[in-house]
Nucleic acid binder design. Structure first.
Lengths: 300, 300
DNA sequence: CTAATGTCTTTTATCGTGAAAAAACAGTTT
DNA sequence: AAACTGTTTTTTCACGATAAAAGACATTAG
């Protein structure tokens, strides 16, 4: 596909799509700097977006006046796959390979081959592997190839050991937070979302994964420790792919987890360290179990 | 200096220097594959080394026969600075800047500027920053610049919090290792080195830093957890630069630390978990104190 | 017939380059 | 004069290219 391209304009395309959705709500767009902060891009990109919107007759643009002329149609949007970052594309391909089986521990990883297969430059693949290495699934041999350590039972155990250590500590810190801390309001909101999901679990069980991440990140943040907070990236990555992959009894598993979360939230609100510890331990134990059962059995 | 160079041959130069030292000990060199494993390089590099050694009259080389003709002279060696990896060069420059003061938290990091200043390509700087980011001192703004989080008191506290959690757990795991585990022999050897250093502390106090790292890595390895083992890289990096930087009362500090290590080793050998915990805590506490006092006072 | 050497191929490390995006600067409008 | 738009400069991102280094294959010595 994109051979020879120096750099894809996915930032522009993604922001353009998001800006289209904004169009539905107003009759005229705000100033360029304001749009920039709203979309999280620079004014340069905002101006490219506005230029195209004028071209396709979506808006009339003259200096400060940006009047909406018509509602966006489905074909105004850029295709979803063109809005992904290279990093996302590479990660997806890599994880697909890794989980598609046949990815034995100890196997060599070839930068050039990966790059060719995905259709991107080697630099991007290298940078991805370096970033990815902190997840502990791959390792670099000094001035030589990368080695796959594998998504093994040992990996899951090491991961959960740290997770439990960190989360117990964070949960205790959370419970000790003063009553006027804004986190309690965040927790209330999350509790509501959990109750809602519990009621509609039969149909919306796949909405859990996203809620799960937000809940645990909130707790970890209470540690006020960057290493603990950052470590949740490892967990989030693993769970992200794990959820996509292991669909067995997903509804039941998620239903149980929602219940555990609610008990956990209750404990936090009680601010009773003993209760918090117990509820946290219980949830982490079943989370570990879920992860472990989903790991393919090793050869040796 | 090295503009336009695609890749420096530091692997070759470093291996060449190490091979020269080997020359002192024997009258003839082993086979090419054997030399390769000995020096940790490929046979291609070994052959380049042998070729040069023949050229400079150090050896006579004919197929299997590699006879040493003369002892290496100082000018046979490549200069030290030519044997460093690009990554090492970049890290050193970056850390010098960071510790030279004037590096306020929140400051932007400019890839291009760094690359120009060090005299290397941007790709290498980017890769360095990605690798370095796991140390928690810098952070990337999505499709924009890096931000320096700074070597602050908060950083030191967060770092030591994790360190203490991990080391207490590793020490307990260490003490629980079976008597026939090879680590006990390693520990004995380290104990001897500590005793030796304690006796010669007046002159050899700067040898402590290296011994310190080996000792703590041995303990962390007992955790059998890659995340714990890998985390020691963060500590090692910080202490490496910290030792170079804060020379105040270095002798006294190291003398105390050696004593604490010996008590710690004693406790481990007793395999009494209570004693281990106490000795570990005591040492970690003074290590934290040392680190904290060496951090420059912040503005706000 | 094993383990070395000799030769050829592939991969990694690094750079320069150019488009995308950000950021800085200059000029306008209210 | 504050906040905007118009223009220019800088920086980031990603690529292809090339030397260094690794690795694979073929040949030969013991």
């Amino acid at each position: 596909m994109g051979q020879g391209m120096s750099k894809s304009n996915n930032v522009y395309k993604d922001a353009y799509n998001r800006c289209l959705r904004l169009l539905d709500e107003t009759r005229s767009l705000p100033s360029e700097p304001e749009l920039g902060t709203l979309l999280g891009v620079s004014r340069t990109t905002v101006r490219s977006i506005l230029a195209r919107m004028e071209e396709t007759g979506l808006i009339a643009w003259n200096k400060r006046a940006k009047t909406v002329l018509r509602d966006p149609r489905p074909d105004d949007f850029f295709p979803e796959e063109e809005t992904d970052t290279l990093a996302e594309i590479i990660e997806r391909s890599f994880m697909r390979r890794l989980l598609a089986g046949g990815a034995e521990a100890g196997m060599q990883i070839n930068e050039l081959e990966l790059a060719r297969e995905i259709g991107v430059g080697t630099t991007s693949v290298r940078e991805f592997l370096i970033r990815f290495s902190r997840f502990g699934l791959i390792e670099k041999r000094r001035n030589s190839h990368w080695v796959l350590k594998g998504f093994t039972r040992a990996f899951a155990l090491e991961l959960t050991e740290i997770r439990e250590m960190f989360e117990l500590r964070s949960a205790a810190a959370f419970a000790a937070l003063p009553q006027d801390s804004p986190v309690w309001a965040d927790l209330d909101r999350l509790e509501d979302e959990h109750r809602l999901l519990a009621r509609e679990i039969a149909t919306r069980f796949n909405a859990f994964s996203e809620l799960d991440e937000r809940f645990h990140r909130l707790i970890h943040r209470a540690s006020h420790n960057r290493f603990i907070v950052d470590f949740y990236d490892v967990i989030a990555m693993i769970f992200h792919y794990h959820y996509q992959w292991n669909k067995a009894q997903e509804r039941e598993r998620n239903e149980v987890a929602v219940g555990e979360h609610l008990a956990y939230i209750e404990a936090l609100k009680s601010r009773d360290l003993g209760k918090v510890d117990a509820a946290c331990r219980k949830h982490l134990k079943s989370a570990r179990q879920t992860l472990l059962t989903s790991i393919p059995l090793q050869k040796s």
